[in-house]
Amino acid sequence: MYFEQINKNTWRCIADGPRHPVTGKRKQISRRGKTKTEAKKRVEEAIEKIKGSVDYSEKITYQEFMEEWLKLYRLKGNKETTVKHREYCLSLMGNHLGKLKIAELTSKQLQDTLNMLFDKGTAYYTLRGIKNALDMLFKYALETGLIESNPTTPLFVPKEKSKLVDEIKDETAKLYLEPWELKKFLELADAHRNVLYRTMIYVIAFTGMRPGEALALKLKDVDLKNKKIHITKTVYAKGSLRGDFELTPPKTKNAIRTIDIDDIVIEKIQYLLDYKEQKDWISSEYLFGDVDGIPPTIKILNQHIRRLGQKTGIEKQFRTYILRHTHISLLAEAGVDLQFIMGRVGHKNSKTTTQIYLHVTEGMRENAAQKMHTKFTELLSKNKEK
């Protein structure tokens, strides 16, 4: 172990780290500090972290190291959907940096790549996911002694300037259907020849559950007598083929919940169950099992919703989530408390849910103000007559 003074306020300590478990070679560990003592302490801490861990070659590329890290990340018991999300986010960076040595990547290279993805229109939440995944990836590189400092520390997520309130309102209005739009959509759904998709549309619109939660429902989860549905799982699609899925825990702990259901939903579900029995469909433990007892894919459900939406002539993006958002808007219009709505749709906090809630309730306040003005005007008119 030896020391060198970099400048007046910085010392570097260098020491031999543990031997590589295969080659037997030692790797020098270097750390900086404001004093000799601090630099020495950081080196000792780094060596302790490396002991027993995998020692990677300094020539390992971003792509190779990313693949190694993902294997370990999966082994920690993370949900497959989470692993796939991390992989997707890191791959977006890998498309541009994959062949470069990870030990030589700089903060500027990483930030420039983030900025480039932003310029190409990558969504803010995706960029934020990339930043989070990079933090974890390079933290592991630091812990294994591959790098001396974490280049992700100064990174930031680029985002657009705040928009005018009117623009935000217009965008929020596109997220859900107005009551008259929902009525028009459901009239077309009622005419849909496939009773399975017809029922799913009603269940999602009148419960606000996520499409994956709906498809994962089993008969035992539905209590028609007590008018309740127990949501404890979701569908994770391994591929695009029907039946190629597994059941996983919901998105968050708050997503595990029991919700009350309306008589309209009960009627639709009961009709589906009776229809299955009459048509002699294969017995299935899944509520939305088809003629072969297998739930459809979210992709196919989206296609049905999109086709019905096109027939309405309403210029909004029709997919499963517009029904979930519509449910939120209906509860807000009914005067239901925001926290109750959050609990019903399985959110602890959600920017989208809050955004829709405030948009709807603001419209209600405007209506109330107009009604008050009319009432006060009427009152003043009567006083003048007297």
Score class of each variant (00 low, 15 high):
R307P: 07
G293K: 14
R319D: 08
L308P: 03
K371E: 05
F376M: 10
L301K: 07
R344K: 03
G335S: 10
R306W: 02
T326H: 11
K311W: 09
Q310E: 06
T320E: 13
T312L: 06
H327F: 08
D290G: 01
I294E: 11
F340W: 02
K299L: 09
G346A: 09
A368Q: 01
L308E: 08
Q317R: 10
T320F: 09
P296A: 07
L323E: 00
R344L: 00
T374I: 14
F288W: 04
E315L: 03
H373M: 15
H304V: 12
H327V: 07
Q303I: 02
L330A: 10
L330R: 08
P295R: 06
I322D: 00
R344V: 01
I305N: 01
I305Q: 00
H347C: 08
I294R: 14
G363W: 03
L301A: 05
S329F: 05
T320I: 01
A368R: 04
L330E: 10
I322F: 03
Y321T: 12
I305T: 06
T312H: 05
T326K: 03
L331G: 14
T377H: 02
G313W: 05
Q355R: 15
V336M: 12
I305F: 06
I300A: 06
G363P: 13
K375C: 13
A368M: 12
A332S: 11
I356S: 12
I314Y: 05
S329L: 14
I294A: 08
H373D: 12
Q310A: 13
T326I: 04
Y286F: 13
V345F: 04
D337C: 06
L308V: 00
F288K: 06
I322R: 01
I300V: 15
G309Y: 00
K311N: 07
N367R: 10
D290I: 03
G293D: 13
H359P: 15
K351T: 14
G309W: 04
D292F: 06
N367W: 09
N302K: 00
I298Q: 15
L330Y: 10
P296T: 10
L358I: 12
M372P: 04
T320L: 03
S329A: 13
E333W: 09
I356D: 09
L330T: 03
N367M: 14
H325G: 04
K299W: 15
R365E: 05
L287R: 01
K316C: 00
F340E: 02
V291D: 15
K299P: 09
M364N: 02
R324A: 06
T320R: 01
D292T: 09
T361C: 07
K299A: 13
G293R: 03
H327N: 10
I341K: 11
G293P: 05
K351M: 12
T312S: 09
V360K: 02
E333G: 13
E333S: 13
K348L: 08
V336G: 11
L338M: 09
F376C: 05
Y321G: 12
G335T: 11
M364R: 14
G346Y: 07
L330D: 07
I341P: 12
F376L: 04
G346W: 07
N302F: 01
I328A: 09
N367V: 10
M364S: 05
L287G: 03
V291T: 01
G363K: 11
K299C: 14
R307V: 05
Y321W: 12
T320K: 01
Q370M: 06
F340K: 04
G363H: 05
T377E: 11
R324M: 11
G293T: 10
R306Y: 07
K371I: 00
T312D: 06
L331K: 05
L358N: 07
Q339I: 13
